[in-house]
Amino acid sequence: MNVAAREPAEPRPGRRTFLQMLLGAGLLGSLASFFYPVLRYMIPPASAELNSDEVVAGKIGELKLNSGKIFRFGSRPGIIVRNAVGEYKALSATCTHLDCIVQYRGDLRRIWCACHNGMYDLSGRNISGPPPRPLEAYDVNVRGDEIFVSRHKGS
């Protein structure tokens, strides 16, 4: 009884709202189904990281005292430095500031980034300029006449 009394009062707006919602939801759904693949398409598939644990960075005798060079550590650059007393140090060569590649400055005995004048010491600590974090240090092992560089165990 109650229902019958109420029904003629607002049947059309109710139906209209319902249809509009249906239409809106349908449009929204179809838009989402158009744009989702587009968005996913724009993000490149994650490439398998070339996860080398150990690489040959160079040969003994290749590096003079107080000099450094860049080597490939997987897909990223590393830097190996032979200091003034002949010890080898290996670090990530990617500046922690804005991703430039660092170099060894024999005159300063520091690792230097040319992009924004960032400076690191030979253990990778950021000592001046804008770099916010130290460079990752790697382990160096000399076997035969080859210099092997590897990530710290457990890191």
Binding site: I70, F71, R72, I101, V102, A114, C115, H116
Partner: peptide, 19 residues
Amino acid sequence: PFAPAPAGIKPEWYFLSVF
């Protein structure tokens, strides 16, 4: 991609102030 950034590297003049 495996060489250090060259010394004296600078962007184009219109990005210098940001740089």
